[in-house]
Design a protein around this nucleic acid. Structure first.
Length: 573
RNA sequence: GACUCGGUAGCUCAGCAGGUAGAGCACAACACUUUUAAUGUUGGGGUCCUGGGUUCGAGCCCCAGCCGAGUCACCA
C-alpha cells in the first residue's frame, strides 16, 4: 500500500470516529430525494416559501464555512450547487451538541456525500439556501478533492487543470470542473439528436461485429487479437461500412450504427485509438439526396445542443450550420487555390504539380494519395463554413460508385467545416465486378508499400453479387463533430477516458535501502509496513519508531529479539 | 518518430552563483449569532518524477530514463 498523506490519515480517523459515534459512514439505505438543487434555485419564490417547506436532497459537500454555532455547506448534486445552512441548536436541541460540534464541524469533509432535509429560505446575503433540520451521512470520502474556487468576478482560483491528472482521474475532473461535465452532456445530446432525426425517417439502429476476421471499410492499420477456440486472428473493426451494406443487401432500406472503431495509429489532439463513428446507409438514394439529408441533419443537431441557434463559436470563428451548404467540385477547389487544372493528369504529371507546389511526396503514393495531398495542403483549410467537396477521383474512393458523367471521378462528398473533414459520403458502389477491380487496385497499392490499403473481403463481394440496391451512405466522426460543437481543440476533451500510457507505479524503497540504514533484515518487513519509506520513519522520533516496531513484533508474535532504543537511534545518524 | 516546454505539499504555483524547501488555497487547533474565494490567530504537512554522475554539499549543474503538454512528421 502506498504511503498515506496527512490529510488521508485524518480522514480515516474521522471515519473511525463516525463509527464510534454509531454513524454508518457507508449506509445501504435508499435516501429519498424530493428535489434537485437546480429545481430549487429556479423555482423558489420569496412570496411563497411554503412551496419548499419540506425538501430532501442529497449530494457532495463542496465547501464548508463554519462560524460558531452556524455553518454553511455547499452541496452539489448532478444539477448544480446549493447552499445549506446548519444551526447548532436546531440540529442539536438537547444539551448534547455532538452532532453539530463533532459530526458537522469536524467529521464532515469536502467530498463527503450527505443527505439533508429542511426548508428553503433566503439568507441575509440573498442566497437561496436550505435550512437543515436533519441530515444523514451517505458516504465518507477518504481522499481530499482539489478545491476550486470562483470569486465574485468569476475568476477561478486553484483550478484543477493539469491535463494529465484531469484525464487520468476524470472522475475528479468532472466533480470540480462543471464546464467539463457540460461538454459530455452536449456530446450525448448530439448523439440523441442524430438518433431522433434518423428514427423520424424510420431508419433502423443496428449493431454489427466489432471483432472482424477482415478489417474492412476504411484504410487504416487495425488492432489484431486472437480467438482461442477458433484459433484464428481477429481484428478490431476500423469501420462498420461493409457490414451495414450487407444489411442493405438483406433488405433493410435504412440502417445506422454509432460504432466504436479502433485504429492502431498515432495519437495526437485529433486522434484517439478508439473513436466513435456514425454510419448510415439508405437504399434508393444517391449522394445528392444525402447532401440534403446531411445539411438538414447538422442544422437539427446544432440547434438541439445550442438552444435553437445554428451559429456556433469555434475558436475565433463563427460557424453557421444553417442549411443549405455550398457544393464545390474537388478539381474546382484545387484550380481555385493552386491555379492547376489537374483533371485528366496522370500520376507523373501530378508529381510534377506537387513538386511545383512544394508538397512532399513518396514513391509509394498513387494518384489518389497525390491528389489528396494537394487538396489537404492547399485547399482544405480555406473552407471554414460548412462546404461539401464533391466528386473525388476514383483512385481515392474504392467503395464509391463511379460518377454518372465521368468515370475518372466518383460520386463522393466530404463535408468540410472549419478546415476539417466532418463527414464522408458516397453513392455506394453496388457493381460487384467494379468493386472487385477496385479491391485489386488496393491490393497492388499494398504490395507497393501502402500499409493502409484495403484488404479484399470476398464475402462482401459475394453479397454484392446477390445484388444491393442503389444506396447512399454517410459517415460522421462523432468525436470531431463534438469537438466542433463544443469548441474544443483536443479530442481528449470530448472522450471521457482518452487513451494514455499506463501510470508508473513509483518504486517503493528496496530491502537493501532499509538494511543500508542499519535496520536488521528481520525488521525490514515490519518497518515497511509501519512507515512505508525511510524518510517517513526518520520524520518520527526514535522512541516512537522503537515502540511501534516492537509493538508490531508483539502483535504478530514474531520470534525475533526485541529492538533496543540505542539500536534504533543509530538508524537516524 | 523529431524538437520545445514542463513534472516541487491534497490543488495551483514560486524557488537559486549549488548552501537545512516557500506562498495561497486545502488540512488541524482555537475564536466567531446568516457566511460568499467567510475572517482572525496558531500549527502540522514534502522520497522536490526515477536512476546514475559532478561536488564538502544538488530541487537547481551533467547523463540516462519515465510521464505529460505543445509544434512538426504520419494519418481518406
Amino acid at each position: 500500500m502506498s504511503v498515506l498523506s496527512e490529510q488521508e490519515i485524518q480522514r480515516r480517523e474521522a471515519l473511525q470516529k463516525l463509527r464510534e459515534l454509531g454513524i454508518n459512514p457507508y449506509p445501504a439505505d435508499e435516501y429519498p430525494v424530493t428535489h434537485t438543487a437546480a429545481e430549487i434555485l429556479a423555482n423558489f419564490n420569496d412570496h411563497e416559501p411554503e412551496k419548499f417547506a419540506q425538501v430532501s436532497l442529497a449530494g457532495r459537500v463542496m465547501s464548508k464555512r463554519i462560524m460558531g454555532k452556524a455553518a454553511f455547506v455547499d452541496l452539489k448534486d448532478s444539477t448544480g450547487k446549493i447552499q445549506v445552512y446548519f444551526n447548532r441548536d436546531e440540529i442539536c436541541p438537547s444539551e448534547d451538541k455532538t452532532l453539530y460540534n463533532e459530526v458537522i464541524k469536524k467529521l464532515t469533509d469536502i467530498g463527503d456525500f450527505i443527505g439533508v432535509k429542511g426548508h428553503v429560505f433566503r439568507t441575509q446575503m440573498g442566497e437561496i439556501s436550505i435550512h437543515i433540520k436533519e441530515f444523514t451521512f451517505l458516504c465518507k470520502a477518504l481522499r481530499p478533492l482539489p478545491v476550486v474556487k470562483v470569486d465574485a468576478e468569476g475568476n477561478v482560483h486553484d483550478a484543477f487543470n493539469d491535463p494529465e491528472q484531469r484525464y487520468r482521474q476524470r472522475y475528479v475532473d468532472l466533480v470540480v470542473n462543471p464546464h467539463v461535465k457540460e461538454i459530455f452532456v452536449k456530446r450525448t445530446r448530439i448523439i440523441q439528436a442524430m438518433r431522433e432525426y434518423f428514427n423520424s425517417f424510420g431508419y433502423l439502429e443496428v449493431e454489427t461485429p466489432i471483432l472482424q476476421p477482415i478489417p474492412g471499410g476504411a484504410a487504416a492499420r487495425p488492432f489484431v487479437t486472437h480467438h482461442n477456440a477458433l484459433d484464428i486472428p481477429l481484428y478490431l473493426r476500423i469501420a462498420n461500412e461493409l457490414y451495414l451494406k450487407r444489411l442493405i443487401v438483406g433488405g433493410f432500406e435504412g440502417v445506422y450504427e454509432f460504432a466504436k472503431n479502433f485504429r492502431n495509429e498515432g495519437m495526437d489532439r485529433t486522434h484517439n485509438p478508439e473513436f466513435t463513428g456514425m454510419e448510415i446507409y439508405i437504399a434508393y438514394k444517391d449522394y445528392h439526396w444525402m447532401m440534403r439529408f446531411t445539411e438538414n441533419l447538422l442544422e437539427h443537431v446544432a440547434k438541439s445542443v445550442n438552444e435553437g441557434n445554428t451559429q456556433v463559436q469555434v475558436g475565433d470563428k463563427t460557424i453557421d450550420f444553417k442549411a443549405p451548404y455550398p457544393r464545390v467540385r474537388m478539381y474546382d477547389a484545387i484550380k481555385q487555390y493552386t491555379g492547376f487544372d489537374i483533371s485528366g493528369m496522370n500520376e507523373e504529371q501530378l508529381r510534377g504539380v506537387c513538386n511545383q507546389l512544394g508538397i512532399e511526396v513518396t514513391p509509394e503514393m498513387g494518384k489518389g494519395k497525390l491528389i489528396d495531398a494537394i487538396f489537404g495542403e492547399k485547399c482544405e483549410h480555406h473552407f471554414v463554413q460548412p462546404t461539401f467537396i464533391i466528386d473525388y477521383p476514383v483512385e481515392m474512393s474504392p467503395l464509391c460508385k463511379k460518377h454518372r458523367d465521368n468515370p475518372a471521378l466518383t460520386e463522393r462528398f466530404e463535408l468540410i467545416i472549419n478546415g476539417k473533414e466532418i463527414a464522408n459520403a458516397y453513392s455506394e458502389l453496388n457493381d460487384p465486378l467494379d468493386q472487385r477491380e477496385r479491391f485489386e487496385e488496393q491490393f497492388k497499392l499494398s504490395q507497393r508499400g501502402d500499409d493502409e490499403a484495403m484488404f479484399i473481403d470476398h464475402d462482401f463481394l459475394r453479397a454484392l453479387e446477390y445484388g444491393m440496391p442503389p444506396t447512399a451512405g454517410l459517415g460522421i466522426g462523432i468525436d470531431r463533430l463534438t469537438m466542433m460543437l463544443t469548441n474544443q481543440v483536443s479530442i481528449q476533451e470530448v472522450i471521457f477516458f482518452p487513451q494514455m500510457k499506463p501510470e508508473q507505479i513509483t518504486a517503493a524503497p528496496k530491502d537493501e535501502d532499509w538494511t543500508e540504514v542499519g535496520i536488521p533484515e528481520a525488521w525490514v518487513p515490519l518497518a515497511k509496513e509501519a512507515f512505508g519509506n525511510i524518510s517517513t520513519m526518520r520524520s518520527l522520533k526514535p522512541t516512537q519508531v522503537h515502540q511501534q516496531l516492537n509493538g508490531l513484533r508483539k502483535k504478530k508474535k514474531l520470534d525475533i529479539p526485541a529492538l533496543q532504543l540505542t539500536e534504533v537511534e543509530t538508524w537516524f545518524k
